[in-house]
Design a protein around this nucleic acid. Structure first.
Length: 278
DNA sequence: CGATCTACCTGATGGC
DNA sequence: TGCCATCAGGTAGATC
């Protein structure tokens, strides 16, 4: 579900809304979302602790705590963080409920349970925890030069889509934004990383940064299943700006001559325009 | 190293 | 109406 733009939308809201709050109590249900430590360890690491900041690396949210630990949140395919008050109805698949001393709650809801929450130290995040320590550059938090991007691109011998969605290269791009970025740059998903001209590299990097920023501006993408919503349950708006994703057999908005194609690559859908992307 | 498939889950949707 | 197959924003691990 959520890729960089959706996670960044939530990060910005958390920054305004939960930083400075103190955690009174934490309730976990089962351990579908708490996989790396016992629920008791998780709960005791949070109770009485204050949230001091919220950052993001790729699709990971990092809530800094005044205990020195970090609350790491990954939303997986279907995870949601939702602000609530205790009397609000508890949604199905609510696995973690954090209650603040000043009132109000933060709830983690995740039907498919691919998401998770855990506590770690900054040290562990930097060196021990594989997924985080091997994460590539975040293109919104730490943009690089297109020249460096070119070096990174050439360090791998694969297709553009597989490069873009490789979290150890560029952090945060998933299936939707890879397709949108490739369309915007006029490049096919199956072009080899080593085949790009200097101009194409520059165009790809410019599209990458632009698309992600545009998507953040519109609050991310909410597809027809309505799964992605922000902290307050609000859907994103960027889906109406999609040029290719989920637009199979609809006319290309650029050339207007062709219908958008959809193919399966390594089990995932890929949308593209046969005419506009070469 | 790189490509592909599987598994982890629940729920929505479409065909018959 | 039910039943079955297929699909879904992610990631890790096995296999070739």
């Amino acid at each position: 579900m959520p890729e960089l733009p959706e996670v960044e939308t939530i990060r910005r809201e958390l920054e305004k809304d939960v930083v400075g709050r103190k955690i009174k109590s934490v309730e976990t249900v089962g351990r579908k979302s708490i996989k790396r430590q016992t629920p008791a360890e998780f709960v005791s690491g949070l109770e009485g602790v204050k949230i001091t900041g919220v950052s993001r690396r790729g699709k990971y949210l990092l809530l800094a705590l005044d205990s020195g630990q970090v609350l790491v949140v990954h939303l997986g395919m279907s995870g949601q963080l939702r602000r609530a008050v205790p009397k609000d109805e508890v949604a199905k698949h609510t696995h973690v409920t954090v209650t603040f001393t000043q009132g109000g709650q933060l709830r983690f809801v995740d039907p498919r349970t691919f998401g998770e929450m855990f506590l770690a130290t900054p040290d562990e995040i930097g060196s021990q925890i594989e997924e985080l320590s091997t994460l590539g550059v975040d293109p919104v938090e730490a943009p690089m030069s297109w020249v460096d991007f070119g070096h990174l691109l050439r360090s791998r011998n694969t297709t553009l889509k597989s490069f873009l969605t490789d979290q150890s290269m560029i952090a945060g791009i998933g299936n939707i934004y890879a397709d949108e970025i490739l369309f915007d740059s006029g490049l096919r998903f199956d072009r080899e990383t080593g085949s790009l001209t200097t101009q194409e590299i520059r165009r790809l990097y410019r599209s990458l940064v632009e698309i992600l920023h545009e998507a953040i501006k519109y609050g991310g993408s909410t597809l027809s299943d309505g799964q992605y919503v922000d902290l307050f349950g609000k859907a994103g708006d960027y889906q109406s700006h999609h040029q290719v994703y989920d637009r199979e057999n609809q006319p290309c908005r650029r050339c207007r001559r062709t219908d958008i194609s959809k193919v399966k690559v390594a089990g995932r859908s890929t949308y593209y325009c046969e005419v506009c992307q070469v």
